[in-house]
Amino acid sequence: MIGVTSGMAQTPKTPPALFDRALLHARQQRARALGEVTFLLDRVAEDMSDRLAAVMREFHTPADLWTPGEGLAALRTRLPSIQRIPLDAAGSEKLPFAPESVDLVVSALALQFVNDLPGVLAQVRRALKPDGLLLAAMIGGDSLTELRQAFAAAESECEGGVSPRVAPFADLRDIGALLQRAGFALPVTDVDRVVVRYDDAFALMQDLRRMGAANVLIERRRSLSRRATLLRMAEIYAERFADADGRIRATFDIIWLSAWAPHASQQQPLKPGSAKASLAEAVKKAGKE
């Protein structure tokens, strides 16, 4: 919103930066060197292929935005002309698209690390040709809630305070509202909840590192965690979130979002007052039957 103070227009504030995207790039590169853990990305890639197959049209100028590694390589048989936009070393959020230059933008497990998600969605909207499609999957919702709670409790006990350990995630309603705000038509969102079991919390944290998804928050603790804090975190995790066999649960919510650049051919909502029969008349009629 633009306000006015003392006769001078106020420009919208830039959202505060939460993520060190240059560090994210470095950690993704390191994960590839160590041997990536890709089970979530593989699941998303398969689901994305199925969702695109259900769209009865061809795409001639598709682009893949910031998907880690070769995560969507399987789509290249269907979309041989797909343009890959990798995350660069600087972590820039400025997209290299001319207005109305692409007809499809896909992105897998990347948008959760964006500092200015409304701005990026607005850039995608401008880049899409009329009736172009955005299809993306991002981590959100209650993802890693167990790890977040266990760390918070352990740090409160052992260190007398809590530091940011797990990134804040957007929920389903937030994403739907942002798509509308960016000017998209026909927005649709849904959640795929994946619960993964591990021997202990340290095995989960090792997987996160090999996903390139370890803590990249700007306000993260810069010193190494105390051994006592880590051990207590693992104990609390096991106490609160273990199954009968002793293995722990980790929740990942994958938020799917799809939306279209507006076009005259798309179904339009009815204008207020244009309905041929009122709700009151329908209720009255039903009561007489």
Rank of each mutant, 00 (worst) to 15 (best):
G3K: 10
T5A: 13
G7L: 12
A9L: 15
K13Y: 05
K13I: 07
T14A: 14
P16V: 15
P16C: 13
R21H: 12
A22L: 02
L24R: 15
A26S: 14
R27Q: 13
Q29T: 11
R30M: 12
R32V: 01
A33Y: 05
V37A: 12
V37F: 10
F39T: 08
L41V: 08
L41Q: 13
V44I: 13
E46P: 00
S49F: 06
S49H: 13
D50K: 11
L52I: 00
V55K: 08
M56F: 08
F59L: 03
H60E: 04
A63V: 07
L65C: 09
W66N: 02
P68F: 06
E70D: 15
G71F: 03
A74N: 15
T77P: 01
I82P: 00
Q83M: 08
R84E: 13
I85Q: 09
P86A: 11
L87R: 10
L87I: 07
A90V: 15
G91R: 10
S92C: 12
S92D: 10
E93A: 06
P96M: 04
A98F: 06
P99C: 02
S101Q: 06
V102L: 04
D103Q: 11
D103W: 13
L104N: 01
V105I: 15
S107Q: 07
S107D: 06
A108M: 08
L109K: 05
L111W: 07
D116C: 03
D116S: 08
G119C: 06
V124T: 09
R126C: 12
L128G: 08
P130T: 12
L133N: 08
L134T: 11
A137V: 12
I139T: 15
D142V: 02
D142G: 03
S143L: 02
L144A: 00
T145V: 14
A150P: 04
A152F: 03
V166K: 00
A170C: 02
A177I: 08
L178G: 03
L179I: 01
L179T: 01
Q180H: 12
Q180P: 03
R181K: 13
A185I: 00
A185D: 05
V188E: 14
D190L: 04
V194P: 01
V196Y: 10
D200C: 10
A201F: 13
A203P: 12
A203F: 10
Q206H: 14
D207P: 05
L208K: 03
R209M: 11
A213Q: 11
V216A: 04
E219H: 09
R222Q: 09
S223N: 07
S225I: 10
R232V: 14
A234F: 12
A242E: 02
D243F: 02
A244G: 03
A244R: 09
A244Q: 06
D245V: 03
D245A: 04
I254L: 12
I254F: 02
A259K: 02
A259N: 01
W260V: 00
A261R: 02
P262Y: 07
Q267H: 09
Q268N: 01
L270R: 13
P272K: 10
S274R: 12
S274T: 05
A275F: 04
A275C: 03
L279S: 07
A286C: 06
E289T: 09
